[in-house]
Nucleic acid binder design. Structure first.
Length: 558
RNA sequence: GCGCCCGUAGCUCAGUGGAUAGAGCAACGGUUUCCUAAACCGUGUGUCAGGGGUUCGACUCCCUUCGGGCGCACCA
């Protein structure tokens, strides 16, 4: 149920009917009705809805937009909508002033839908969101954290927007980096066993690798010393990957994220899917050999330069595996595939889409959400992140310091396109300056009102038993905001903009706090109290559902 | 050099081609002790980085210049 969308659809039909009627009467001349919009004007003086249809028709109809608008108004058919006023305004806008009575139906809708409120009709479309997909060779960093918050919120939003959603984590468990990882593990192992041995130049120098090796020693002691190097590395890698993936899974769970699929890159190679896709491209003539390597002619799809698929040493590149991976995704039947990537991978986007085109899939069914980098601040000072010095803050440490709720909210608060300054002090603050606190507090405050109401013997009545015409302008504004929620979800999904939900719930919490500071819910006027209690209940539901989307808890008291 | 993102109020940021560009913080002025706590109310003259273009209409789309970030591996 999306009340805004329903009203919009009805107005849309009325306009089209009016146009047809005017054409029949030969007052307007046109072949096609243009793709006009019915929008909610920013300024409420311009009505509840406004359409630009007259402006768009001006050229074809060879008439002044305001005249066209007037003709449309004069030909509005009979309809069931209660409309107070329709006016022609500005350059030719048609403004609709819908009777406020439609808002009185909102509480019953929200109340009946409960935790389902906000959900749009099912679309029967399968969408996959792949996000984080961190290398299992180290700790989760702030980029992974932001990707997690964005990806998971986006998945939640898409689900409520009507899609069938799957969350997936791609595990890069083979390739060059894993070899380097193995060499690093081996060096640490030998060092810890007292051998005087150097460390690989580009190895993983972090303390977490040392810790992992210490865990291995705890169970295997010196048992790996006698092994041949390649066997030893494999043993170390298997153990370490297992440990790292367990760490990632548990940290993600602490962050409120639960994946449907953990997809191993290795299985792709083992199943021959990578060779398969290279062969496929070869058959189509997109592959050529040069300097011992096999190249994919990505320039044929707008890339700047061709890319290596199979290296001279016979091993496929990450790109080759990634094409096979994305082919596999589409073969699994997804109508829409979404990846959340760090902005440092942007160069990969065009060639990935090109690759999809080359293997016969519509590149428009693949969307990449690129997110900009994160900067951590502590008391106005930037927290430098350096793997060398080991001062990097990991996601598990962040969750421990500021809590899951603040972390989730902060990471998703800004547009993915925007660099994110994460203020650790603000995130911990128990004050209304802290946006997550501000929203949660609104929820807790409403719960408190209900506790007070119960103590006073006041009950929450069913919306049908309550007269909402007693409500004033501020309450109606809140109703209007609540009515927007499903539409907000639809837009957020369509534009892949999960930060809109954070802003939405901040707005709603702001309206609530402001109302709370001016009016008493529990008061002498019982009819008013009944209406306000219902209003409080649907604010509570909408805030709760918004916070659910964000993966943030809604406390009963604070 | 080429490509992607960004540039909006003092600061941090919103802004699905629509009408007079918004919010929070900060600043300034005022009120107040009330279901949850020093909270509440009010106050914005912004070259939407600059310049061109498309459009009835541009912060939004295109071109270009400047500034910042990030990429441009037989790494992932």
């Amino acid at each position: 149920m999306n009340p805004i969308q329903e009203l919009r659809d009805k107005l849309n039909n009325i306009i089209i009917e009016a146009l047809k009627k005017a054409k029949d009467e030969e007052l307007l001349q046109f072949q096609h009705i243009p793709g006009f919009v019915i929008e909610v004007p920013k300024d409420s003086n311009h009505g509840d809805f406004a359409s630009n249809v007259a402006m768009l028709m001006a050229r074809e109809a060879r008439m002044n937009p305001r005249q066209i608008a007037q003709i449309i108004c004069d030909h509005m058919p009979e309809h069931t909508l209660e409309i107070d006023k329709i006016e022609v305004a500005g350059a030719g806008f048609i403004n609709f002033f819908v009777s406020k009575k439609w808002l009185y139906d909102i509480p019953a809708l929200v109340s009946a839908m409960g935790d389902q409120y906000g959900n749009n009709p099912r679309l029967n479309k399968q969408v996959q969101v792949e996000f984080v997909s961190a290398n299992p060779t180290g700790n989760l960093h702030m980029g992974n954290a932001r990707g997690g918050a964005i990806g998971d919120t986006l998945a939640n939003v898409l689900a409520r927007a009507g899609y069938d959603v799957e969350r997936e984590f791609y595990i890069n468990d083979c390739g060059n980096q894993i070899e380097v990882f193995g060499q690093s593990l081996e060096a640490r192992y030998l060092q810890l066993m007292g051998k005087d041995i150097g460390f690989p130049e580009n190895g993983y120098a972090g303390q977490d690798v040392v810790d992992t090796v210490k865990n291995i020693i705890r169970t295997h002691q010196d048992g790996l010393l006698s092994m041949e190097s390649s066997v030893r590395q494999k043993t170390l890698i298997d153990y370490a990957l297992n440990e790292k993936i367990k760490y990632i899974k548990s940290t993600m769970a602490d962050f409120g994220i639960h994946y449907d699929v953990w997809f191993s890159e290795k299985t792709l190679h083992e199943a021959g899917k990578v060779e398969e896709v290279v062969d496929y491209l070869k058959e189509r003539g997109y592959i050529y050999e040069s300097e011992g390597a096999l190249w994919f002619k990505t320039t044929a799809f707008g890339d700047e330069k061709d890319e290596v698929m199979i290296r001279a040493n016979g091993l496929p590149t990450y790109f080759a595996a990634d094409i096979a991976y994305h082919k596999d995704k589409f073969e699994r039947g997804f109508d829409w595939v979404i990846n959340v990537w760090g902005a440092d991978h942007h160069g990969h986007v065009a060639r990935m889409k090109g690759a999809m085109q080359a293997i016969g899939y519509d590149p428009d069914h693949l969307d990449i959400v690129l997110m900009q980098l994160v900067r951590l601040y502590r008391g106005g000072q930037i927290v430098r992140m350096s793997k060398r010095t080991g001062t990097t803050v990991s996601l598990d440490e962040l969750i421990e310091e500021v809590g899951k709720d603040a972390a989730r909210f902060f990471f998703v608060m800004r547009s993915p396109d925007s660099h994110l300054d994460f203020d650790l002090e603000l995130a911990k603050q128990q004050s209304q300056d802290n946006p997550v606190y501000y929203v949660q507090y609104a929820h807790a405050r409403i719960m408190s009102i209900f506790r007070q109401a119960k103590a006073a013997g006041a009950e929450l009545k069913k919306p049908a038993e309550v007269d909402f015409s007693i409500l004033g302008a501020e309450e109606l504004q809140i109703l209007r905001k609540i009515a927007d929620f499903p539409e907000e979800i639809a837009i957020s999904a369509r534009t892949l903009a999960p930060h809109r939900i954070a802003r939405y719930v901040l707005d709603l919490a702001g309206l609530f706090h402001s109302f709370y500071n001016h009016h008493r819910v529990l008061n002498e006027n019982k009819a008013l109290q009944d209406a306000r209690l219902v209003l409080m209940d649907i604010i509570r539901i909408t805030i709760k559902n918004s916070l659910d989307l964000l993966g943030v808890s809604a406390p009963e008291q604070m």
